[in-house]
């Protein structure tokens, strides 16, 4: 007869609590930086995808297909280990001297998620009546300026719900960064488990924190879109 003894104190105080908190800090940093970058990059790729310049359009198309159809884990390994082979020696030296683990994770999360965000934004743009583009072009705006001031602000507003989904995915996917040694939340939960063998407690704590993070992100984006984007009512 084997019985599992619960001991929640390991995750509510002391050293292991500190680990979980430090993991949370890193998860928040990783997610926040990647969300902002992925959104901006996604906007850019979406615009490129709709460009009338053929090479630009095909580049964006290839980008989307490639990064949406490759597992994120593979991409993380690619940027961390694979980039070593293609980068010049001096660049590698420099990368190894800084916190390249974090940077590689941000790059992978950003690029992977931006591909999904770009497609969401593109479908948002396609739902904006073409007359909006005609009106802004008639006003003397170039194609890119029209996108920037007229089309994208409207498209992003429509795209808010799928965007929230992508942001949440990104936050959860950030746990894969632990495979290259980034000590984020899941990594720390595993550490706590490895040291205390209190896996249920550690992962329950991590789960609750992820749920809380998701709720907070949803609230922030929803509030922002209500306050800033939906003033028109």
């Amino acid at each position: 007869m084997l019985k599992y003894e619960f001991d929640w104190s390991v995750v509510t105080s002391g050293q292991y609590y500190d680990w979980i908190v430090s993991g949370l800090h890193l998860t928040i940093q990783l997610s926040a930086v990647s969300i902002v970058l992925a959104f901006l990059l996604g906007l850019m790729i979406a615009v490129m995808r709709m460009s009338s310049v053929k090479p630009v359009k095909w580049f964006a198309h290839g980008y989307l297909e490639f990064f949406r159809n490759t597992p994120l884990l593979v991409q993380i390994f690619f940027w961390y280990f694979g980039s070593y082979k293609i980068l010049p020696h001096a660049v590698n030296e420099w990368l190894n001297s800084v916190n390249f683990e974090f940077a590689a994770a941000v790059i992978a999360l950003t690029i992977y998620t931006s591909a999904f965000i770009a497609e969401d934004i593109r479908s948002g743009v396609l739902s904006i009546p073409k007359e909006q583009m005609e009106a802004s072009r008639s006003g003397g705006f170039s194609y890119l300026r029209s996108m920037q001031y007229i089309i994208l602000p409207q498209a992003v507003r429509i795209t808010i719900p799928p965007l929230i989904g992508q942001f949440l995915n990104l936050t959860k996917n950030s746990s894969l960064a632990m495979t290259i040694g980034v000590a984020e939340l899941t990594y720390q939960a595993r550490q706590v488990e490895a040291y205390t063998f209190k896996g249920f407690e550690a992962f329950t704590a991590a789960t609750l924190v992820y749920v809380a993070l998701s709720i907070i992100i949803t609230a922030i984006v929803t509030l922002y879109s209500k306050k800033v984007l939906h003033r028109a009512g």
């Binding site: 007359e131 005609e134 009106a135 507003r157």
Partner: peptide, 12 residues
């Protein structure tokens, strides 16, 4: 200046 049948103001 161009004025459209459907106005095409920027709704946002």
């Amino acid at each position: 200046g161009f004025v459209f049948q459907q106005f095409n103001l920027y709704p946002h």
